[in-house]
């Protein structure tokens, strides 16, 4: 029992379970999943589908944070990639062709990748603080996206493009498969090879890992490229969902929600040890909380108040001060010897 409580995924999992329980008690239709034309529908399916962009961005953010960094530019990268993709489709003679959409998607991801290379260059080669280095692109990126679309909201009618966000592959939404693919491939690369360990080493002590022969520059650079590529894909999903490239609204504040998801999942912002499963839980908590707030009839514009409370509670619980208070409370209740054992156990 103790080990379960101590597990670092315990609290996020408990939070998600509580949210789902409260929801299903308050509205029985929450858990109901219906089958229509061989496709599944329901509140839970919606959560899985709508969480795809945040899931991708948060996964990239997890790796960046593990290297002691942060990537504020993800929202701007989303805007750029959506703008690039839609401008290509809009300008082509055959917007409904699968080939056109494929070219648009690949070009958009390539542009996002270039932006990631730029971020990584500033952080790993020039040694600029990650917050500031990515702030540059966060400011300039949206402007660039507006230039790509000429300041308009480009809209397109393209069947294959719309499929990315709203289509179904067999019984589940296609967007859900994109997030699963991203989770699986990152988990395999980070956890089945030494890369994950090296990433954590760089985050825990950059200097020591450099002396131990870890090529920290490449690892940090790669993290920003990965984050930008995932943000690029997220931007395409977002654009596909609204069938438009809105450079001002695409991915607005998503960097903050992604950071929140990572923190909720138990990854420390100090870098080092990271948990992909925790981030996945974090994203699902945010999406479920969003759905709950909407269900409660609270205007979605007011939802930040709830997230602020969540952030404050989470960071205060995680802080050393509160932990030492709790430890002191626990220790005063027992005799000295057993207190010493807890100290060792923790």
């Amino acid at each position: 029992m103790r080990n379960i409580v101590r597990h670092r995924l315990f609290w996020p999992a408990l939070a998600l379970a509580t949210l789902i329980t409260v929801n299903s008690a308050a509205r029985p239709q929450f858990l109901r999943v219906t089958m229509r034309d061989g496709e599944l529908y329901g509140a839970l399916i919606d959560i899985l589908r709508n969480s795809a962009p945040l899931m991708l961005v948060a996964l990239g953010m997890t790796i960046v944070i593990a290297t002691r960094g942060i990537d504020l530019s993800v929202g701007a990268v989303m805007a750029v990639s959506g703008a690039v993709a839609l401008t290509i489709i809009d300008g082509s003679s055959d917007p409904n062709g699968v080939g056109t959409v494929l070219i648009a998607v690949v070009t958009a991801i390539a542009v996002a990748m270039v932006l990631g290379v730029w971020n990584g260059l500033l952080v790993s080669v020039f040694g600029i603080q990650p917050i500031i280095a990515t702030l540059v692109l966060m400011l300039a990126g949206r402007g660039a996206a507006l230039l790509v679309t000429d300041g308009f909201i480009t809209t397109v009618n393209s069947e294959p493009f719309a499929f990315i966000a709203s289509g179904y592959l067999t019984v589940l939404p296609f967007a859900f498969f994109i997030s699963v693919a991203a989770i699986a491939s990152i988990a395999i690369v980070e956890r089945r090879t030494a890369l994950g360990m090296l990433t954590e080493a760089v985050g825990i002590n950059p200097e020591a890992s450099r002396l131990a022969g870890v090529r920290s520059r490449g690892i940090i650079w790669g993290a920003y490229v990965l984050s930008a590529v995932l943000a690029g894909i997220a931007g395409i999903i977002y654009a596909s969902n609204i069938k438009a490239a809105d450079a001002n609204a695409a991915g607005l504040l998503i960097e903050l929600y992604a950071i929140l998801a990572v923190v909720l999942g138990g990854t420390s912002l100090q870098g080092g040890t990271f948990s992909l499963a925790g981030t996945v839980l974090g994203v699902l908590i945010i999406q479920t909380l969003n759905s709950t707030i909407l269900f409660m009839g609270i205007p979605s514009a007011q939802s930040p108040v709830f997230f602020a409370v969540v952030v404050v509670v989470v960071v205060v619980i995680q802080s050393q001060k509160v932990r030492s208070w709790i430890r002191a409370l626990g220790a005063s209740g027992r005799n000295r010897r057993s207190a010493a054992t807890t100290e060792v156990a923790s």
């Binding site: 942060i70 903050l256 950071i259 007011q302 939802s303 930040p304 409370v309 952030v311 960071v315 050393q320």
Partner: peptide, 23 residues
């Protein structure tokens, strides 16, 4: 008091103030 990183603490402030504005 809680040694929260300024970035995260003020992020909570951002959410709080923006939400309150809409309240």
């Amino acid at each position: 008091v809680f040694s929260v990183q300024p970035f995260i603490a003020s992020l909570a402030g951002l959410f709080l103030a923006r939400g309150l504005a809409f309240v």
